[in-house]
Design a protein around this nucleic acid. Structure first.
Lengths: 151, 151
DNA sequence: CGTGAAAATTTGCGGAT
DNA sequence: ATCCGCAAATTTTCACG
């Protein structure tokens, strides 16, 4: 990870679909060099892919929530079972497996408040391993798509 | 949003860098049609862009946490001031503004546990408007990069 | 890491259904 | 009104220096 790699990463973080030619021009190397560096970043697992940023409201899912879940017993099979199940639900955008007051924070997007309520009481609470659930509605979600390398 | 739009969205969600030619082939239309549809999705704000998926560990930030913050008073100027400040920190990956037991959930990535502790006690707690902070270390973060449209 | 040429893709437009 | 075919422009890709 030299300065050139970091510069290429910055360019692609600003727009993952930027053409290799534009990236090369922006960082001051030839397209072939930029291409080889970018491929190496992928091979090394530093770049994992490119995610489409979709407006959730316009696909009918304007209501987001974070749901803190505590599981009992918090043993590996139970944790992993719940994790995989909840990650596979269509409402789920992401799952954080955490230490602390809860075992999971589940990020969901649904069409409306009724759907959210139904998700929590009909689907989540049906799981026997759930000891506690706390739901927070998300008013706004800001993302920093460009985390910077350190060291 | 007809079936063709949804199919194109699905393809690009699986890989935001997929070539237009591949998208067209996968959904069964000509490249020119796929291109025009994709541009329309962008114009309509349904596609907001493409984010690079970077492995945080390999850029020196392997430790993630979710930090629940309560603010006082939770008035608009105070909320928005804190939101903009915390979103601009280099450690911050994202900020959820929420209802419920906390006003914010801040998602951060740092080099190690010491950095996390320093972030919480040196930077966050310095802000006078913070009434309460609860930190949860994130062991694992699964994402569903392909939220499906409903209706 | 760059050059240059070949291959592949993107793009705009005229015409078809 | 939407989609396709085609050709030009642009970009990607790679062998070689």
């Amino acid at each position: 990870m030299d300065e050139l790699d970091r510069a290429i990463l910055r360019e692609l973080q600003s727009d993952a679909r930027k053409s290799n030619r534009d990236v090369a021009a922006a960082v001051g190397v030839s397209p072939s060099t930029a291409l080889e560096r970018t491929r190496a970043l992928r091979r090394r697992g530093i770049i994992r892919g490119a995610l489409l940023d979709v407006d959730l409201a316009s696909i009918g899912r304007p209501v987001q929530a974070l749901i803190a879940v505590r599981i009992r017993p918090p043993s590996r099979p139970v944790i992993e079972g719940f994790r995989d199940w909840v990650a596979s639900l269509p409402e789920t955008l992401g799952v954080f497996v955490t230490s602390g007051n809860e075992d999971f924070i589940v990020h969901v997007a649904v069409p409306d408040n009724d759907s959210l309520y139904a998700f929590v009481i009909d689907r989540l609470t049906q799981r026997r391993e759930i000891a506690d659930v706390r739901t927070s509605v998300v008013y706004e979600h800001l993302r920093n798509g460009s985390p910077e390398p350190v060291d």
